[in-house]
């Protein structure tokens, strides 16, 4: 028996979401069992099942926030400051 991870996607813009796991002997039966266990009430319109052993898992910290790459997070501070100064100028007039 293999363990499969089950992913469901609701219609529209939602992404695939992990629903849970299921034990099954083959891919085909995994799809059937996943449907019976996770999709009895229109929980999604599309389904993926993936044999757990085929999932590549990143190391701890591999995708942690890059705090030294602040240029990826433009905070809009400079423009905000300028706008504020413009507003102040107007109210001074």
């Amino acid at each position: 028996m293999r363990i499969y991870e089950v992913f469901l996607k609701a219609d529209g813009k939602e992404e695939f979401r992990h629903a849970g796991s299921i034990e099954a002997p083959t891919d085909e039966l995994a799809l059937v069992l996943a449907r019976e266990n996770y999709a009895r009430r229109a929980e999604g319109t599309r389904m993926w099942v993936v044999d757990r052993k085929n999932i590549c898992v990143s190391e701890e910290g591999f995708i942690d926030a890059n705090l030294n790459k602040s240029h990826r997070h433009n905070d809009g501070e400079r423009v905000a400051k300028w706008r504020k100064s413009q507003r102040n100028k107007k109210s001074d007039d």
Binding site: I3, G20, N37, R40
Partner: peptide
């Protein structure tokens, strides 16, 4: 019945993990 057996099924999966 199907729901309850299903609940058991899912819970045994995460317990086994």
């Amino acid at each position: 019945t199907q729901d309850e057996i299903g609940h058991a099924h899912l819970l045994y999966m995460i317990a086994a993990d």
